[in-house]
Amino acid sequence: MSVLLAEQLLNGLQFGVMLFLLAAGLTLVFGIMGVINLAHGSLYMIGAFGAALVANATGSWWLALLAGLAAAALVGMAMEFVVLRRLYARDHLDQVLATFGLILFFNQGIILLFGRQPLFVDLPSWFSGAVEIVPGVPYPSYRLLIIAVGLLVAAGLYVLIQHTRIGMLVRAGATHREMVRALGVDIRLLYTLVFGLGALLAGLAGLMAGPVYNVQVGMGEQILILTFVVVVIGGIGSVRGALFGALLVGLTDTMLRGFVPGFLRGMLPPDQADALGASLSSMGVYLLMALVLLIRPRGLFPAHG
């Protein structure tokens, strides 16, 4: 039982870290720029496609890494420059409509360019094996890599935001946007950089997801909803909130899927228990969100004072 618990904890951690990479960008963009970007999932998809195509063409994992990051960051900055820049002053409904349009645009674009068939990427050879976390329980080393990269990114973001000049501007922008502008900071450049950073993180999540999940059209929307849940739970605009929110959501989802059906099996006939368990665990994350909002309506770590 404890072995299973350890394994499920790792699974939850890995899922949480993946959500964090997406949520960090989303929360920064919303917290600092005040823009709801539904097309954040498209950047995740673009990162995954960029990496998958280059990995399959060249066989080089490093080139694929570069390509995925570059594709997501460039598309992200172009998106900010062409579309979002016109939306800062508009209300959220306009932003939602425009970025929803972007989702359709990117999905159809990918279909036109690469077709509807999912792409497949092999694991990088030195991470294709499994590590025995406890004797007799192998755990895929690639998933451990995802956890490590995610935690490193979290640490890097902490340093960047708490201990650098850019980070100071980002924090200032999140709390007093007008004041930062009044002090003569080029807020437009800051916005583009923040958006690029968010896109970069989404691309990183996408390219790491490639070898485990399918790289296909619409992959971003599957995970986007949970990402919004994370941002809301964590507190909008807070990267720390995104980290804790993501880990909380990742662990809750995995633990419920892993243990609720087994728990119910002790009380109900098996087929009912399994069906009920499946439904309960898919609701769990949303119940968690409702609970958090009931106690802390602004999320766990609200950024705005």
């Binding site: 039982m1 072995v3 299973l4 394994e7 499920q8 699974n11 939850g12 890995q14 899922f15 329980v137 998933r143 997801a209 485990v212 999940y213 399918n214 992959m219 599957q222 995970i223 989802d253 995995t254 899927r257 892993g258 059906p261 087994g262």
Partner: peptide, 12 residues
Amino acid sequence: TDYAAELAQIRS
């Protein structure tokens, strides 16, 4: 998209 939780159940 991720079946890790189910795979762990199967293993156990």
